[in-house]
Structure formats: C-alpha cells, structure tokens
Amino acid sequence: MSSSIASSSSSSSSSSKKEKKISLKTSDGEVFEVEEPVAMQLEIVRSFFADNEDVTEQTVMPLPNVSTAAMHGILEYCRAHEEFRRRMPEAAPEEEVRAFEAGYVDRKSNEELKEMILAANYLNISKLLDFLTGVAAKRIENKSVEYVRAFFGVENDFTPEEEANLRREYEWAFEGVDED
C-alpha cells in the first residue's frame, strides 16, 4: 500500500545507521512504517511493545480506531516533535514549536481537528491531545451554545423547559457572546 509516503519523508531525517521501523495499520488497512522514536510517542504503541517481549519488528500493530487521514496528521506532529527533540535534546525551541503548532492547526478544518482528537485520545499521546483539545477550546471560545452544538455535532437533549432554566441560571454567561 502507500507506505511509501511514510518512509520517504522519514529518510531525510534518518541518520547514517539504519533506523528501526514499526509498522502500524490503520482502520482502512493502510500500513505505515514509522521510525521507532516517533512511534514510541504513541503511548498505546509503546506499551504494546513494552508489555509484549515476543513481538518482533515484523509485527504489524493494528490500530482499528485510527483512520489513514488522522494518522497522517498525527505522524506529522510526532515527527516534527521528534525532530525538535533530536536537534535540541535539552530544551525544545519554544518559539519554533509554537510557530509549527500554529501553522499545523491552521491547516486543519474543524472536522479534521475532531477526528484527530479522537485518534490522539485512542493512541494516548497526551501532549498532542492536550494541544488539540486546547485548540478545540479556543475555537469555541466566546461562541454561542448553538455554535458549540453545531461544532461538535452534539444534539440538544434538554426539554425546552430545562434549557430555559439553565439559561436563566447562567444568564450572566450569555452577555457579549460572538455572533455565529
């Protein structure tokens, strides 16, 4: 399959010695060959290999809850962070990281963002999850309740009476909300 994408982009950063690769299979059956230090940022992968001594490099780890699209986004982030770490092992170049992260999420639509949050949650990458949920929070900042529902595709399951009561209780929170 198109594992070539994964391996080609990594070859630029690989050092002289041959890097260990880990194969990850997404829900739609695509296999990604990922450099070990990058893959180890995925807690689910790390614990899989830590807990199972008998798995070999040939083992393809299935990730049934991650789509190919989300995987591309996740690997882009993890690779960038691995690169930062490689260059500056002591302290990450904060401004560069911020610039990267800002550019990274700017390119992500709301749909992509949501899908990646779910994937990051499943893969247990706390740094990315923390970052992405922060972005999601930012995107609903000062937005109306209706906007938030639409954003997250959440159904309003209050009775009209309940909702009216809540809105009355939190009346103070509805002043100066952005127009949708």
């Binding site: 999850l129 930012k138 000062n142 997250f152 595709g153 959440v154 159904e155 399951d157 909702e163």
Partner: peptide, 29 residues
C-alpha cells in the same frame, strides 16, 4: 461525533475554557 459526549475527552476540552464559556457549556446538552 458521539465521542464528544464522552466525558473523558470532553473534560479535557472543557478544562481549557474560561468561566463564562464553561457556564455556557452547561447548556449544550
């Protein structure tokens, strides 16, 4: 989308909101 009604992820997002945003979040569902 249903997963955004999963308390785990939701909590992470909501924990990053300011007080007024959080109050409005109470009215979502």
């Amino acid at each position: 989308f249903g997963a955004f009604t999963c308390p785990d992820t939701l909590r992470l997002i909501l924990s990053k909101l300011a007080v007024t945003d959080l109050a409005r979040a109470c009215c979502v569902c």
